[in-house]
Amino acid sequence: MLAALAAVPILIAVAVRVTERNPGNGRGPAFLDQITHNGLFVAVVGLTVCIPLFLPLTVGVVAGDTIAGEASAGTLRYLLIAPSGRIRLLAVKYVGAAAFSLAATLTVVVAGAIIGVALFPVEPVVLLSGNTIGVGDSLVRSLLIAAYITVSLLGLSAIGLFLSTLTDVPVGAMAATIVLSVVSQVLDNLPQLDWLHPYLFSHYWLSFADLLRDPIAWTSFGDNAVLQGAYFVIFAALAYGRFSGKDILS
């Protein structure tokens, strides 16, 4: 899955490079053309493309597999009688899913940076607020964005962990997690439900643009962290409530 994620910025970069000669033909997001001016943008563009579907998809697969995957392989009972302890097992599984979220976003950033440097000119980056920062500073910003997106996925990971404790069929938990991430984004786009938007776990997913200002606007980072923390607390508690007393019959 990490290889597939790494392929996204590479595909974008190669596609843009190949079609570079006829820019501005009106198709595709306008920001894609930005990367022809500066290879450092490839990482950010890659993340932007991955956030709505690809990253939640891979995180859903990993988080949905945590408990249900062990149950379907028949290893859950052996882990529990080893004894791993139920709370400890949940904690380890969640840390694993969170680590995957970090690895996934870093993969996109690193692959994007490498392919960007390889195919396009590297220049100081002009931020959204108009200032210019050096190459090193812009890499730091890229990593900040990766951190932001990792945090963004923590709530979804907790949801996946909880769904995974409900079933012995990993595919079911994975699909349910991914469906929830899509539903959340659809609801976020319905203006009639704007009262609900700040509570949707996907609400701040694309707000990392604030990290491309100077000085950095940390409010969206903070709001996102609080929201994801709340989702983590709720769904970790539900997962614990479900799993601690569950009869393991797999």
Binding site: A73, G74, T75, L76, R77, Y78, L79, A82, P83, S84
Partner: peptide
Amino acid sequence: VGALVEGPGFYPYLSGEANLRRLDSADR
């Protein structure tokens, strides 16, 4: 207590040795 419950359960893509190491490391 050691146990074998309703048949063995292991990860097919790991070696026997790796499976045992994994289960052993689950035992705190």
